[in-house]
């Protein structure tokens, strides 16, 4: 394995941990539980002030973090359906939480990175690339817009924006290397 690939794998593992930690934090808060220490520890690698943000939102109600609430009019009305179809396109379905909830979107990001890592492990580059493309699509099409509509999600929005950049650069390199 050359250095570049090794770096990419480490970055992907980092990204997997990041989304898993964000998910864990939000999911715990959603259910009125305290955020597990390891999630906070993980996110601190990315920003020392993350703990402040978690403290700020830990008593918040997170039910309204949904596209249906965020967007007015037709878009809001159909957003649940839009997300359902988005997952379905890639062979998945949302359960337990509404499909247009931020936590569900984060869970999907987490799931996609896990699939990507599995593909890398099995040396299936094309499949890994495939899952990376879906991540980029999810972030660009839905996640950024949704996070951007909730003020309290601003710190999270910054992280995801950064992530999109990482993802975009990696994809650009990968595609330019393709025969």
């Amino acid at each position: 394995m050359d250095n570049m690939v090794e770096d990419n794998v480490v970055l992907t593992i980092g990204r997997a941990k990041m989304y898993s930690a964000i998910f864990t934090a939000l999911y715990s808060i959603y259910h009125g539980k305290s955020v597990p220490e390891e999630s906070v520890r993980a996110l601190k690698y990315l920003s020392p002030r993350i703990e402040d943000w978690i403290n700020e939102i830990k008593d918040e109600r997170l039910e309204e973090l949904r596209g249906s609430y965020a967007f007015e009019g037709l878009k809001g009305h159909t957003y649940q359906k839009i997300m359902e179809e988005f997952y379905q396109t890639y062979g998945f379905e949302a359960k337990e939480l509404p499909p247009d909830h931020v936590i569900t979107l984060i869970a999907f990001m987490s799931r996609l990175i896990m699939e990507e890592l599995q593909s890398i492990q099995r040396n299936e580059r094309e499949r890994a690339l495939h899952f990376r493309v879906i991540q980029h699509r999810l972030i660009s099409t839905h996640l950024l817009e949704l996070l951007g509509s909730f003020e309290k999600m601003k710190p999270l929005l910054d992280l995801v924006k950064m992530d999109r950049y990482i993802l975009f650069s990696a994809l650009r390199d990968e595609i330019s290397k393709s025969p």
Binding site: D7, V9, V10, L11, T12, I13, G14, R15, K17, M18, S20, A21, T24, P36, E38, S39, R41, A42, Y45, L46, S47, I166
Partner: peptide, 14 residues
């Protein structure tokens, strides 16, 4: 990126 690499290498398991 530095943070992500650090997180990737760290023994933090989530």
């Amino acid at each position: 990126i530095k943070g992500l690499v650090g997180l990737g290498c760290a023994s933090v398991f989530v």
